[in-house]
Each structure stands twice: as C-alpha cells, then as structure tokens.
C-alpha cells in the first residue's frame, strides 16, 4: 500500500485558515489501512480542528466524509455536492488522491492533510515499513525477494557497505535493518548464496522516476 502520516497539526491549521466551509475528505483505501486518512482519522482531525477554531474564535464549518478511493474518478460522485459547496477540500488521501481530487474538481482548492511516505507493508499492527521504491524494473528475483533499492539506505545493488552491523544499518540502527543482511540471510537459507557473488551491472534507472513522470497505457482498456 501507499503509506502516509498526518501532517503536523500546526501546518494543517495554518493551511486551512480563511476557509469558511471546509470538507475533510478521507480515503478508504491505502491510507485507511495505514491509519492515516480513513474515516476515523477524518473524525479525529475534524474534532481537533473544531476545538482549535473554537479556542481561537475562528468561524469555520467543517464537514466530514470519506470515499472509497480518491485516485479513481467514479468514487467522487458520492461527494460531488459536498465538494462543490465547500470552500476548500482538506484531503486525507495520499499525494495521488489529493492531486486527483484537484484534477476532478477544477477550480476547487484541495489541500493535503497527510505527508505521503512510501510503498510499504504492515510489519506488525501499528508499524509499517518501506518495501518498494517503484523503480520500474523489478529485481526481486535476484535477491531472494528482498529489494536492495528500497531497503538499503544507499540502494546498493552490490552491497552491503561497511555500515552493516549486527543486522542493522548505521543510518538508524534502532529502526532500520540492513537490507543486505536480510538479503544475505535469505539467499543463504535458499541455498543461493553463490548468486550473490555475481557482480550486478550498472543499473538502468530510466524505468523509474529518473525517466520522468511515469505513465502506463493499456491499449486494450483505453476507451
């Protein structure tokens, strides 16, 4: 999923200042799963903002709603009227959802309530970690299903560097496992350690962000 965390409240309250009627719009997909921008989080943010406004004598009507996804046009139909009536939409979707909402409702002010972080998985309840860098050219077959690009702090294809200590990455030993230690352990258990002796050639990064904004076109599906 795409993971995100809520922006600092100060930043949000400053951002929404001056709007008389604000729609806080949650997203029912990834950010609901990572507990950053679903229905519950919409309620909490709305309550906090109302309390803040009351304390500061700010008059603002705050409406709450959540749709299934903010990255697909069809789901916006359900909240179309609410969006049109609001002065601004405070979107609790990921960056893609915020932008898409703005694209669907041209001329509407759409503001981000979240900081989008990464493509990740639920390591355990309440903990999410980055797994994929969206490089556009998957190498997981070569590394036992562990991505060196996303999980090594330096994206080394021929790791690990000297900063690997007791399974941890020196960049943040508390929180970051050395991706290459994980790769090594996995390849060893798979009996494939010899594969890691081969030098990984210089990479083609053009399939990812370095090739410019990505676009996928499925000719058979295009209307």
């Amino acid at each position: 999923m795409i993971t995100a965390v809520q922006k600092p409240f100060d930043e949000i309250s400053e951002m929404v200042k001056g709007h008389d009627k604000l729609l806080i719009l949650g997203c029912g997909s990834c950010v609901t799963v990572c507990m950053a921008g679903g229905e519950k989080e919409v309620g909490i943010l709305a309550s906090t903002l109302r309390l803040f406004n009351k304390q500061n004598n700010i008059s603002m009507e705050i409406i709450e709603d959540t749709i299934e996804r903010q990255c697909d046009r069809e789901f916006f139909d359900a909240v179309k009227d609410k969006i049109l009536r609001a002065d601004a939409v405070l979107s609790m979707a990921c960056g893609a959802g915020v932008q898409f909402c703005a694209e669907v409702f041209e001329g509407k002010r759409v503001l981000p309530a979240l900081n989008t972080r990464f493509y990740g998985a639920t390591e355990q309840q309440g903990i999410w970690s980055e797994c994929c860098a969206g490089c556009g050219s998957c190498v997981l077959d070569k590394f036992g299903g562990i991505c060196p690009i996303a999980r090594c702090s330096k994206s080394l294809l021929n790791g690990p560097c000297g900063g690997s200590q007791e399974g941890k990455c020196e960049v943040d030993p508390e929180n970051i496992d050395c991706g290459w230690q994980l790769i090594y352990d996995r390849m060893k258990s798979l009996g494939l350690l010899h594969k890691l002796e081969e030098n990984e050639p210089i990479n083609d990064w053009s399939t990812g962000r370095d090739g410019g904004p990505g676009k996928i076109i499925r000719e058979d599906m295009v209307l």
């Binding site: 690990p160 560097c161 000297g162 690997s164 230690q181 350690l193 030098n199």
Partner: peptide
C-alpha cells in the same frame, strides 16, 4: 571492511571488487 557484517560475506564482496 573486514569487520562489518555479515562477516562471511566480506571476503565475497572483496572478490566481487577483484572481479570488477
């Protein structure tokens, strides 16, 4: 770096540098 982990991989990584 002969002292970093995984220790057994350190010489392999040196071999990769030699191969390069």
């Amino acid at each position: 770096n002969p002292f970093a982990d995984p220790f057994e991989f350190r010489v392999i990584r040196l071999a990769k540098k030699v191969n390069a």
